[in-house]
Amino acid sequence: MDAMDGTATEQLSMTAAELSFLLASGDRPGEASRLLGLTDADRTDAVLSAGLGSLLLRHLAAPVEGSRLELSPAVAAIAAALHRPRAFVQVGLTADDHADGALLFDAGGIRFMVGARTYRRYDITPVAADADVRDSLLAVADRFLHRHRPATATFNAATAADFARGAQPARATLASSADGSWQVVGVDGTESTAAGFDAAAAIVRGELAKMLPLAPASG
């Protein structure tokens, strides 16, 4: 993953310490830190030093003249998006005995999905600049909802400004039932039932288009 300029599609895994170091290097860590589940304990000198060391060891960063640090293109793009996000969409996935989720960061020209994994590791997958982000969001829900029945995918969307001031996010849900049917609850609370995933996903696509200006309004 050499770049994140809208053409890169490879996934990059980063640790909580690495992300904490990137966030500490900027002037606006608040929104991203909270969404990623990072706390004050992740901002200690020991953790930040570990994050820096890991980036250097993995050749994701390199020291340059003086005390400056040069990040790889992909990591620099991630850092820029974490520091200046435009909007977020959280996908919460729940079933009787399973839970998962993903987080979309949108920073205009840079967009990526983040999935938390074991051992405080995060998988980061770029979303191409010309892609409809609804496809990425629904793909996350699709995999989980077909694997676990009954199960629910909850989409929470907010601009960075709304999140910072504590405003309630816009919300829609997509649920799979044990009998094979699908249920959607829209932003305004309207409930719909569909016989198949494709029909339910089409309804969710319309709801997501209302929630944030992240995707084309048509389709």
Rank of each mutant, 00 (worst) to 15 (best):
8 A>K: 00
9 T>Q: 14
13 S>K: 14
15 T>E: 13
17 A>K: 13
17 A>M: 06
19 L>W: 07
19 L>C: 11
23 L>W: 00
25 S>Q: 10
26 G>M: 08
28 R>Q: 13
29 P>S: 08
31 E>A: 14
33 S>E: 14
40 D>R: 15
41 A>E: 09
43 R>Q: 12
43 R>W: 09
46 A>P: 12
49 S>I: 05
49 S>D: 15
54 S>N: 02
54 S>I: 00
54 S>F: 08
55 L>H: 07
55 L>N: 06
55 L>G: 00
59 H>S: 09
63 P>A: 03
64 V>K: 10
66 G>K: 00
72 S>W: 07
74 A>M: 14
74 A>Q: 08
78 I>N: 01
79 A>C: 10
80 A>Y: 11
88 F>T: 09
94 T>S: 14
97 D>R: 10
103 L>I: 06
106 D>I: 00
108 G>I: 11
110 I>A: 00
110 I>R: 04
114 V>H: 11
114 V>Y: 02
114 V>D: 04
118 T>S: 14
118 T>A: 15
118 T>F: 04
120 R>N: 07
121 R>Y: 04
124 I>F: 12
124 I>E: 03
127 V>Q: 05
127 V>E: 07
128 A>V: 08
130 D>Y: 08
130 D>H: 10
137 L>R: 06
139 A>T: 15
140 V>N: 03
141 A>S: 13
141 A>I: 09
143 R>V: 11
143 R>K: 15
145 L>S: 01
147 R>S: 15
151 A>H: 06
155 F>H: 00
159 T>R: 03
161 A>Y: 09
162 D>G: 01
163 F>G: 05
163 F>R: 06
164 A>R: 04
166 G>V: 06
169 P>H: 00
171 R>E: 01
174 L>V: 03
175 A>E: 01
176 S>L: 00
179 D>Q: 13
187 V>K: 00
188 D>N: 12
189 G>T: 12
194 A>F: 07
195 A>S: 15
195 A>N: 10
195 A>W: 15
197 F>D: 13
200 A>C: 13
202 A>S: 06
205 R>Q: 02
205 R>M: 11
205 R>D: 11
208 L>E: 01
210 K>R: 04
211 M>I: 09
217 A>N: 13
219 G>H: 03
